[in-house]
Structure formats: structure tokens, C-alpha cells
Design a protein around this nucleic acid. Structure first.
Lengths: 234, 234
DNA sequence: ATAATTAGTGTCAAATTAACATTTATTTTT
DNA sequence: AAAAATAAATGTTAATTTGACACTAATTAT
């Protein structure tokens, strides 16, 4: 096979950027490596793509191994493949970001690893190019969340409007007028009001809402400035 | 090195989805393969990532080999890695989309390949999963172009407003009111009017414009429905 | 000179946004 | 038990943007 001549082997890995939201700030789940190289330093959770599995499957496997969770929102983001990115071998890593509802994350299975949530604003120095991976995933998350309502993946089934507001503020690192935010959100029909109230976080209590999944599906939330705002039609 | 045990080799490739705009419709550049497997079928231009090069470099190299162009707008998009995506070996391919100004593409170097532009609406069946690659790149292009003014990369230095309008219409496959489009575009300060007119395409002639590169840089063009429209500040 | 063609500007009502004020439900304090 | 404190939720309004439509302008072909 002429075609495949002289092409040398490259190891292929996946790394997972696991985002969570604790009600205050956006968090990222990191592990302390218990193996060489770079033992005892913080890093993303990763693993090698096996001969019989797709990169997506590898990423899900890695995520499950760490968190015990399946059917999590995951999305491929950038590939890091600089020949010198790892000192001892040529590893090309495909990054995935996962959005998880931290209430479902119980840290049972991960006794095996030393895993810890860190705020995205302030996490330790990571091995190799993992910092860049997080930065790139964060950029991707912002971009995607500007067009699609994926941030709801970070919230539990029932959530309050102040919670969503705090989440958006955390992701984009800005503050905005909660009154206008609330009005926009409600007018989208994306969320459905429940009778129950969350009394944990305030005296008055905030009504719980749930997602309107019919509208949620692939709904684009923002529109190109140069496109009419009716695009795309739902 | 315990760490890297039992991880088997996977071939790593890149494939380029090369977009161009001919003034009417969005086009994609395909080649007729002159090698096995799948000789004489249409496909994307691709190549293997070499031991000493990054995937980005591989993609640029492949693009240059086909088009002779360098310093082209290129962006990583999705990775295709299904174990069975190629019949004879395990190849994981990283896709890149390139936006090229077709006026710069002269097809000199590519005598070596049989390359041809096809409209994105109607191109031949491609080998392997290359159709999916194009679909995915198109989706990515739409998403990115909804937030950033990257479509200007497809136009020559000087362009007219009717050209930009046709381009946006081609990318999103819709028609819209040219008067409102023009008003929005002009109010953005993204383009600067020149004295010269393009007389090729109409009797009256349309004024040429050039990009305002200062404003172009990373300008976000659309805003999250749930974010105030002043975000992000430039 | 006139028609044809497409570029470019103009109008205006309706919808949306940004900025700001008030009311409501509940708990804590006095 | 009344008052203060807290945070949620709803309300107000002027300014801006949008969408839909009409018109004028520049040029070429007839």
C-alpha cells in the first residue's frame, strides 16, 4: 500500500475539560496525577484512544471512570498536537468539554483519583498544555452558549432564575441587570414555571423552573447581526 | 514506561474543507483521487500528519500543495475517528476548513491533481465520511460567521455590498432584504467605502468597499439573547 | 429619448432594549 | 407583634433597532 508508506505512528489521546457550576462560579474538575510523568501535579482527566473505539467513546469512558456519570453533554473541541507538547513521546490529544450537573456528581467512583473542583478563575498550574486546553474549551463554551442554550446542562432539573443569571454571569464573567435578564428569559418560552419554591438561598424564596425541552432542542438563541432575526425558523 | 503500555498506533491525518465564493454560491474544492483506495472518486484534499509537524502545519502544507496558497484563514473543526471509517486501516482525521479568496486561487500548482470547485448545494458523492466532514464544516462555518465577521476572508480586498449580501445568503441559504442588510452593515463601521466602482456586474455599478481591519479584529457580530448587547466590549 | 436594470437611500410603525423604580413574600430583629 | 432587612418579581419609559415597504439614482441597451 503505497498510500500509507512512511507514515509513522502517533499516539492519540483524549482529555476532558469537565465544567460544573456550584451556584456561584463556573468550576473545572481536575485530578492529581498518580503516575509518571508529572506525578502529583494537577491535570485534566485523559486517556488513550483504544484501537477499537472512537475518540467520542474514549472521552465518555474517561469521563465515566472519573465521575461515574453517563449520558453527559459532551462536545469535541480543539485538538492539541504540537510535536513537543509532551516531553517523552508524540501524543496528539483531542479535547472534549463536558457540562455536568454537580448535584449528580457524587465523587464515589473517583476515590481512585484525587479529583477536585476548582474555580475557572483560579485553578493551579497544570501539566503540559492543559491550561491552554481549558482556555480553548472556555472560549468554545462561550461561543456555543451564545448561540445555543447549552448552559442549562450545568443546572439540575429544577432551577431558579437567579441561578441561571449567576451561571451566565459566571460563564461570561460580567454582571448584568437581572430584571432585564429575567424578562428576556421568560419571553423565550424556554423555561416553565413550577409551583415549588427554592427557600435555600433567600428569604422570599425563588420559584423553580424546568426546561421546556421541546423548545430547547437545537434552539438558536442569538442571531447574526446581518441576518434577519427570524433566522433560523424553528 | 508503564503509562504508555498497550496503546496501539493509530494513523493521524488531516482533511481540508476548502470553501470559496464565486459571487453566486458557496463552493467547495474537491479532488479526484489518483491513488488507491477509492481511486478516481472525488474526495477532500488530505494527508498524514508527519512525525515532526503539528496538525495545523500538516493542514497548511496540504492546502498549499493543492492551491499554492499560504497564510490562508484556516480553522480546526471536527475530528472523525470511527474505527471503521476507512476500510483498510485505522485513520483518525482532523478536519480543517479554509476560506479562500477564489481570485487568488489560480490552479497552477494543482495541475498535479484534478481539482474542481463544486457548489455546496450540489457536489458529488465523496469517499468515506467526507460528506459528513463537509456538513460539519458548513455547520461550523455558519456558527462562527454568526459571531465573527470571518466571511470577509472569502472576498477579495475590494468588494461590493451586493457581493457580501450574496455571500451571506449563500452561507445561510436564505434570502433577505438587501436594504436592511446594507443599513446594518454600514452602521457597523466594518467596511470603508472606496471611490472606485465595480461595473462588471451591473449597469449602475456598485461602489467598492474595503475592510476596516481595526474593527474586524475579533469583532463579535451578534450577541447572546441573554446578555446585554454591549457585551463584549471591544 | 426611453426603457430596463440594479444600486443605494428614505420612511415609519412595531418591537426590543437599557436603564431605572416599585411592589411582594418572607425572615430576622427588636 | 411591629419594623427592618433581604432578595424576588413585576412595572415604566425613552431610546434604539428592526422589518417591511417605496422611492430615487446611475448607467447601459434599444
Amino acid at each position: 500500500m503505497e498510500y500509507y508508506r512512511e507514515d509513522s505512528a502517533i499516539l492519540l489521546a483524549v482529555d476532558c475539560i469537565i465544567f460544573g457550576f456550584n451556584g456561584e462560579s463556573l468550576q473545572v474538575l481536575l485530578i492529581k496525577r498518580d503516575f509518571e510523568p508529572e506525578r502529583n501535579k494537577w491535570s485534566l482527566m485523559g486517556g488513550f484512544v483504544q484501537p477499537d473505539e472512537s475518540p467520542e467513546l474514549a472521552a465518555s469512558r474517561v469521563l465515566k471512570k472519573l465521575t461515574g456519570l453517563e449520558n453527559v453533554y459532551m462536545e469535541q473541541c480543539s485538538v492539541f498536537g504540537d510535536p513537543k507538547r509532551e516531553p517523552n513521546s508524540r501524543v496528539v490529544s483531542i479535547c472534549y468539554f463536558a457540562l455536568i450537573d454537580t448535584q449528580k456528581y457524587t465523587h464515589i467512583l473517583s476515590e481512585e483519583y484525587e479529583a477536585k473542583w476548582f474555580p475557572l478563575q483560579n485553578y493551579p498550574t497544570l501539566i503540559f498544555d492543559h491550561d491552554q486546553m481549558i482556555a480553548s474549551a472556555q472560549h468554545r463554551l462561550r461561543m456555543k452558549a451564545a448561540l445555543y442554550p447549552i448552559l442549562f446542562e450545568l443546572l439540575p432539573e429544577k432551577f431558579t432564575i437567579p441561578q441561571i443569571a449567576a451561571l451566565y454571569e459566571g460563564v461570561y464573567n460580567i454582571e448584568f441587570d437581572k430584571r432585564n435578564f429575567s424578562r428576556k428569559l421568560l419571553s423565550s418560552d424556554l423555561i416553565i414555571k413550577l409551583d415549588e419554591k427554592d427557600k435555600e438561598n433567600s428569604k422570599k424564596g425563588a420559584f423553580y423552573f424546568k426546561l421546556n425541552t421541546a423548545i430547547y432542542k437545537e434552539k438558536i438563541m442569538s442571531f447574526l447581526r446581518y441576518l434577519p432575526s427570524w433566522f433560523p425558523e424553528n
